[in-house]
Structures are given as structure tokens and as C-alpha cells.
Design a protein around this nucleic acid. Structure first.
Length: 596
RNA sequence: GGGGCGGUAGCUCAAUUGGUUAGAGCCCCGGCCUGUCACGCCGGAGGUUGCGGGUUCGAGUCCCGUCCGCCUCGCCA
């Protein structure tokens, strides 16, 4: 239908007759004798010109009816422009049109995709996604995503991984996120679940001798979305046999380096590795953003000397702690108005408050300054304070202080310019706890998932652990690892349990009786008992990877047809009601009346 | 489920303490324009102020409820 795309024409094509197809990006009419039309396709723009030249009045008449976003095909001759436009790659040529066909006329548009400024709100963009996707920005994102997917397949293919598809209709398994369920027609009263990840299938592929598996795969978790989270998302999922942790990390690090090199031209240095414990201690979070300092510093040993009630009360609690964050230059930035907002912010994480002081002229001032006299020198040295700094304190139990100051650290960094642009700080976090005790349900939960192996050093402690000994159980370390990029978790995985006995012990600690474990996971336990190889793997969030590469905070930007925060596709209006007959076939009756 | 912000023309926004006929730009329609490039100029059309209720002589504006979108806490092995 066409001979060229819009962006590929240049001076070397002058004199050639070409056919272009695309959309009217801009129309500039100059009366009955001259009309300019910028034609846009996926590749870019070409200026088409309609001129009066003898008996082609009809052509101009046709052109004068064009509107933005009409879809057209035109035939013409490439020629040099009288006045060039250096803003676009094809700005030195134009196509003198000899014939034009309007392939498809547009209705009045809800918005104009050719102006990237003044975009309508996201609701309108999502409702008319097909118009939004015409924007060059969106086209670039789609292409970036495609290139990452291709790179992924190429890289892992080079490393002897094979892509294997796993089922989308699965059985529901306990633990983890809420499942999306699909009723079975053939098995009345039975339900499939959509996979939260292909975790068990990929492990069983290892038992099945696949050795190295890869899949770019949709996963489903029926939880409330966030700016960086959708219920339906894509993982780069892989698993390897006969490997230990470092071998998995090396492969994955090589992958991330290759992606950043190919996509951004960035050479990433080797990734630092940090234990979970260190990440929590220094940054208050398991996915530290190491592009800036503002680290959490323990001052529990100094705090009692202050006599400050909030500090001493906190230290009297079990696992009580007092920590401080040095904020360079904070004395000037932290007006009363600014620091007043810290307390309610910290309170949503359970903290009582976060006192602040300024350090100027060798003295503390404002806030709780009057309590700090006796520890001034030690504090200055411990935190490395310099003139003009501010200090933020947190005092409570370890978990509350960690969470509150960890979050406040990020808030301060974002709002007061402590995050350097154009920096890529990758790192590995490892040695996670295997279990976390939940007071409310009075049981343990797997921090990663129930198939994560303990580290070699911890294996015996796991097997010997008494379910009632919370401190011991919570201290067992797993052989799990997360890849962190600029404070965002872009991948996570672990060495898996390949021993049926170890897996049974983990189920026991998670409160699953042997009968329940057999009922829900017999296929896994069976598989592990037939000569399962040691194996491990990782899953990458493709959406988040692309978000980093294109520089957006919004996961919907990197998904062609995303859903709103209430799980609705605003374009197709899914979910929606179905015929009563469909429900009947599926043996399903709804207890709710949908309001349509 | 909780908290916050928002919803006025197709789109982006405005509208004084509650007060005349709810305005502007873009888009759209009509006309003019032979070198523009976000072309320009003239004219025109376009509104149940998300929806429902209330207070008031009078509501875009105040109150209550509700729906939708976004951000967030919980949640997300």
C-alpha cells in the first residue's frame, strides 16, 4: 500500500515518486492554491504539499476537507523544500502530492494526540486509548517494551534457557495474594485460579529436566493497585537447575547490564550486595535507594543521657530503639511549616512523632534541642554533623522506627531535592528472614514464598526449629535475593527447596498440617521426591523495568491497555455483566446486583 | 475497608463574600488566505456545572449522600 514510511525520506529521495500512509498531524491551508499537510505514521512526520498546477483544483478541494487525525494515503514526488524545517528529521524535503485518498475520516476528537502538551486527564486518555497510543511518546514506550522483550529472549537464549509456556488456568493454592478465580463448566462447583506467578510449574520444569527455563508471562494478583502496581502484570520469569545463589545473581546481573547498555547506552558497574538486615538498619526498607545518604543511625546508647521522656520511654519497650537521620543543609530547608508535616506522616506508620533539631553555629536549636546538651559532641561525631544540618529523630520499637524513618527518609529526599538525577544505583539485597510472625493471626508467613530454601548455614537450624520458638524461627535466613534499582524492587527470587523433607518442615512452620500440605501441594511434594535437582530462579517485573527505562512513575504508561485503580478497563468496560445462561452453564449464581 | 485531592463546553481551564444571560483558548462548523510548519485572519455553533437530595429569595459556589478518576494506608507469598 505504501512505498516508504514518513520518517525515512531525505534528500537522497528527491525526484522519486513515493506513496505514504498515515494520519493528518497538522493541516495548514493557504487558500485555493496551496495546502500543507504533515503526515504522521509510527516512524515520524513528512510534510506533504498540495499546489495548484493546471487542472488539479479538485485535488486541492479534496485536501481542504482534511482534518487532524484523518487517515490518508498519498502519492507524490519528493522535492527539496523552499524553506527548511530543522525541527524534524525530514525537514529538508517535502512530498508534492499528485493524488490523495482519504482512507478513513475522523469524528471530532476528544483530544489531539499531536500536541503532547496539555494532555487531557488520564481518564480520557484511557477511555480513548487508541488515540492516546498514537502519541509518539506512547509509541516509543511500546517499542521500548518490545525491544526489552526481544533482548530478554536473545540474552537467555544465548545462555541456554528455553521458553516454556505454563498454564493460565491453575489450581488455587493457599498463601500469597488473593486469587482471580475462573469457574469450571465441566467440573461443577470447581474453580480454576489465574496464576500469581508460574512458581510451582517452573520448579516442576526443573524436576522435569528442563535445566534452564524462561518465560515472559502474565501474572494475576487480585489486590488493590497502586501507581506502580496492576492486578495483571508481566514477569520475566526464569529458573535454573544445578546452581547456587551467586550463579543466579551473575546471570541476572549480566541481563540487567545488557538491558541498560543496549537501551540506554549505560555501562552499569558490578552490583553491590547488602544483607536484608543492613538494608533495614541503614535505610529502613528492604529496597534501599542508595542514590543519596540520609541514613538511619542508631543512637540508642546515647539517648538515655538526654533524659528526654520520649527517648527513655521508647527504650523501655521491648526492642525499643532511638535513631537519627542527618539531613545535610536541613537547617535552612526545614521551616516550621515543613517539619510540622513530618509528625502526621510518621504517625501513619505507628510512630508517635519525629522530633527535629537544627545544628547551626555549633549549637542545636528548635524542637528538642534543649534535651541534647549532654550528648551534643557525641551526636555531632556519630552523625558527622556539619554547620547548617538538621537532624530528625525516631524513638519507638525497632520495627516502627525503621518503617517511619525509612519512609520519612524517602519523603524528605523527594521533596527537598536529595535525589540525584541520571544516576542508576543497582544492588542486591539477600539473607532475608524466611518467616515473619503475625500477631493477629498468630502464625508465621513466608517473607518471600513457602518454596524458598534456607541458606546452607541455616538449613539445620530450620529442621531443628520449634514452632513455638518465635525468636529462633524469625531469625532463620533464607537464600532469597532481590534486585533493587534506585529504590525500586525490579526482581526477586531465591534458591528453592528441592528436598521433600525440608519443604514439609516449612509447611509445618507455616501452620499447614501434613494432611493440608498433602491436599494442597501433593503434586509439588511428589515431584520433589522423585530426584529433584537443586534449583533456583528469579522473576523480573517487566513493567517496572520499562518504567525505569522510559522514566515514568506510572505503570499504566507502560501497558497498552491498563486498568484503573478499581480494576476497570475504561475503554472496553471490563468487567461487565454476563448472560444468565452463561452463569448457569458455569454453575454460578451472583449474590450481588451489578449497577450498570 | 480508611485518609487525601479532583470532576464546569469534545479537551485544558476561569467564574470576587452565595447574586445579571456560566467565560477564554484549543477542537469543531462556515468564510478568507500561494511557503506554512502548533500557519494566520473574520464569523458561528457548542453547557442538566458527574449524579441525587437539602439549606436559601437565589447554589458552579454551602451541607449530606452517591458515582467516577488519581494519590495513599491496609493489602500485594
Amino acid at each position: 500500500m505504501r512505498t516508504h514510511t514518513c520518517n525515512e525520506l531525505n534528500e537522497s529521495h528527491i525526484g522519486q515518486t513515493v506513496t505514504l500512509c498515515g494520519w493528518v498531524n497538522a493541516y495548514r491551508g493557504h487558500g485555493t492554491g496551496l495546502v500543507f499537510v504533515d503526515v504522521r505514521d509510527r516512524s515520524g512526520l513528512t510534510q506533504a504539499v498540495f499546489e495548484t498546477e493546471g487542472d488539479n483544483a479538485e485535488l486541492i478541494e479534496q485536501a481542504s476537507k482534511l482534518r487532524n487525525e484523518d487517515c490518508i494515503k498519498l502519492v507524490g514526488t519528493v522535492r527539496e523544500r523552499a524553506s527548511k524545517n530543522d525541527k524534524i528529521p525530514t525537514g529538508s524535503i517535502e512530498v508534492l502530492v499528485t493524488s490523495m485518498e482519504r482512507l478513513s475520516k475522523t469524528k471530532k476528537l476528544p483530544f489531539i494526540p499531536s500536541t503532547e502538551k496539555d494532555l487531557p486527564n488520564e481518564e480520557v486518555r484511557l477511555r480513548y486509548r487508541y488515540i492516546d497510543l498514537r502519541r509518539p511518546t506512547m509509541q516509543n514506550i511500546l517499542r521500548t517494551r518490545h525491544r526489552v522483550a526481544k533482548l530478554t529472549r536473545d540474552y537467555f537464549d544465548e545462555h541456554d534457557f528455553i521458553e516454556v509456556e505454563t498454564p493460565v488456568l491453575c489450581r488455587s493454592t493457599p498463601e500469597g495474594a488473593r486469587d482471580f478465580l475462573v469457574p469450571s463448566r465441566n467440573q461443577a462447583g470447581m474453580w480454576y485460579a489465574l496464576p500469581q506467578s508460574p512458581q510451582l510449574f517452573k520448579q516442576i520444569l526443573m524436576v522435569g529436566g528442563c535445566d534452564r527455563y524462561l518465560q515472559i508471562v502474565k501474572c494475576f494478583r487480585d489486590e488493590d493497585p497502586r501507581a506502580d502496581r496492576q492486578a495483571e502484570f508481566t514477569q520475566i520469569d526464569l529458573e535454573m537447575s544445578f546452581v547456587d545463589r551467586d550463579e543466579v545473581l551473575d546471570i541476572m546481573e549480566g541481563f540487567a547490564k545488557k538491558v541498560w547498555k543496549e537501551m540506554l547506552g549505560v555501562d552499569l558497574p558490578d552490583f553491590p550486595r547488602m544483607t536484608y538486615r543492613e538494608a533495614m538498619d541503614r535505610y529502613g526498607i528492604d529496597r534501599p535507594d542508595t542514590r543519596f545518604d540520609l541514613e538511619l543511625v542508631d543512637i540508642s546508647d546515647l539517648a538515655p543521657k538526654t533524659g528526654f521522656g520520649v527517648f527513655t520511654d521508647a527504650l523501655a519497650k521491648p526492642k525499643g530503639i532511638v535513631k537519627a537521620i542527618r539531613v545535610p543543609g536541613g537547617a535552612e530547608k526545614f521551616s516550621r511549616k515543613v517539619t510540622d508535616k513530618f509528625n502526621p506522616f510518621a504517625q501513619q506508620f505507628g510512630a508517635g512523632g519525629v522530633p527535629t533539631v537544627k545544628y547551626t553555629g555549633g549549637e542545636f536549636s528548635t524542637g528538642i534541642a534543649k534535651f541534647l546538651g549532654d550528648i551534643k559532641d557525641e551526636l555531632v561525631e556519630r552523625l558527622g554533623l556539619e554547620d547548617g544540618d538538621a537532624v530528625v529523630f525516631g524513638a519507638d520499637t525497632y520495627s516502627i522506627v525503621t518503617k517511619a524513618l525509612g519512609e520519612l527518609r524517602l519523603k524528605i529526599a523527594r521533596e527537598h531535592g536529595y535525589i540525584p538525577e541520571d544516576k542508576w544505583n543497582f544492588l542486591w539485597v539477600y539473607d532475608f528472614p524466611m518467616f515473619e510472625y503475625d500477631e493477629e493471626t498468630e502464625r508465621y508467613y513466608a517473607l518471600h514464598h513457602p518454596f524458598t530454601a534456607p541458606t546452607k548455614e541455616e538449613a539445620q537450624r530450620l529442621m531443628d526449629a520449634d514452632i513455638k520458638d518465635v525468636d529462633t524461627v524469625e531469625s532463620i535466613l533464607s537464600d532469597g535475593y532481590d534486585m533493587i534499582c534506585n529504590g525500586s524492587e525490579i526482581g526477586g527470587g531465591s534458591i528453592r527447596i528441592h528436598d521433600q523433607g525440608v519443604q514439609s518442615k516449612v509447611f509445618e512452620l507455616l501452620g499447614l498440617s501434613p494432611e493440608e500440605a498433602k491436599l494442597k501441594f501433593s503434586f509439588l511434594l511428589d515431584a520433589l521426591s522423585y530426584g529433584a535437582p537443586p534449583h533456583g530462579g528469579i522473576a523480573f517485573g517487566l513493567d517496572r523495568l520499562v518504567m525505569h527505562l522510559v522514566g515514568t512513575e506510572n505503570i499504566r504508561d507502560v501497558i497498552a491497555f491498563p486498568k484503573s485503580l478499581t480494576g476497570v478497563d475504561l475503554m472496553s468496560e471490563a468487567p461487565n455483566v454476563v448472560d444468565a445462561e452463561q452463569l448457569k452453564e458455569l454453575h454460578v449464581e451472583s449474590t450481588a446486583e451489578a449497577s450498570v
